[in-house]
Design a protein around this nucleic acid. Structure first.
Lengths: 193, 193
DNA sequence: TCTTCCATGTAACGCGTTACATGATTTT
DNA sequence: AAAATCATGTAACGCGTTACATGGAAGA
């Protein structure tokens, strides 16, 4: 069975055939918002998928010193993809370095803590704007309402992004409120006075 | 500079000194909700932190065949931790296999898609209950309101968990609504009729 | 007696990032 | 002429998981 990256590539190829380079470009967005890979990981994985019979390659004209291959899904590849989508997923554990940092936020004074949360808030806000712009773009096509279209699925992931970032923003605001009501250390108090 | 796991361990030791085994138990919750590690990763990392002068170990009585060491933070360790908390973090990229799966959800029929989203919804709900229970426990102690206490930071991370899971639940419900309005394939239609 | 828990480690492997390597075409 | 872009790969390294190894104490 392919790795998670393998299924991401199968998902890209199910939408349309591509070369390795195109796949590494297409990984950027919107799927790259939730799963990323560099080209150095993509090329070997494509070879593995091909030798597993899930994709097939056709040699085409290309610029570089090496031959260019256009990959597409085989029937077996499509079956593997649908099976993976339908299958029960074991619950994944979260890894969030920001929240880990907040878990140790008590070691700095509330002023420095608030500064940290402010920076996190701005990062979430910037990401929210990106998601919203891409979502607006997707929604100009009425096909995005039909669950059988790739565009519907892209829209669903972007909506997930928008909602999670809005929740993160609200959490930052809540946290700033909690930090704000407390006496600040000497330097900050002097500035305030 | 330590790895992210290193800072997680420094954060644990800043709260109280512990042996390697205790640290691997304490990684479970609440910090483990957002960063996990197995004991096989913790023991070598503790050695690295010690040789970097960020922690120090004291030999104590223990059961196993090997000597037991109780680790605690040095002054330098505490300084590294506060510097890391205060420092600007480079934006981390998200990795979410669930959303990746939804990004390919268009390859299955809307009935199977809805079943998948239902299972995701239940997983989020179960996690939400865990977070809420731990949060209720933390909030019995009034120290959780003071930003200079470890309990405040634990509370902040648990609130983050609650809010993100609630957002995920609402997204699942939205997605089920989008999937629901569409004609289902033969077998499901027969059951409905 | 068998299993579980306590307790500390090492080894092998897979996934992911950074860096190295090559060379044509297009842009500055 | 130099730099960026197109384009495809390999190598080295770090982080994380699974499996292996050891042995005492407590409970079923």
């Amino acid at each position: 069975m392919p790795s998670t990256l393998g299924f991401a590539l199968l998902g890209l190829l199910a939408r349309r055939p591509s070369t390795g380079y195109e796949l590494s470009r297409r990984m950027d967005r919107p799927v790259g918002f939730f799963w990323t890979a560099k080209h150095s990981q993509i090329y070997p994985e494509l070879k593995r998928l091909e030798s597993a019979g899930l994709t097939e390659a056709e040699l085409i004209d290309g610029p570089g010193p090496r031959p260019t291959k256009r990959y597409s899904l085989t029937e077996r590849g499509m079956r593997e993809l649908t099976a993976w989508v339908s299958a029960d997923a074991e619950p994944q554990q979260v890894r969030d370095a920001d929240i880990l940092k907040v878990w140790s936020i008590w070691v700095v004074d509330p002023g420095a803590a608030a500064a940290l949360v402010h920076r996190m808030r701005e990062a979430h806000l910037a990401r929210l704007h990106t998601y919203e712009a891409d979502l607006a773009d997707v929604e100009t096509d009425h096909a995005c309402r039909d669950p059988r279209t790739p565009l519907f699925a892209s829209r669903a992931t972007l909506v997930a992004g928008v909602r999670s970032r809005r929740a993160a923003l609200q959490w930052c605001d809540w946290l700033l409120g909690e930090l704000g009501g407390w006496p600040v250390p000497a330097t900050a108090a002097l500035v305030a006075g």
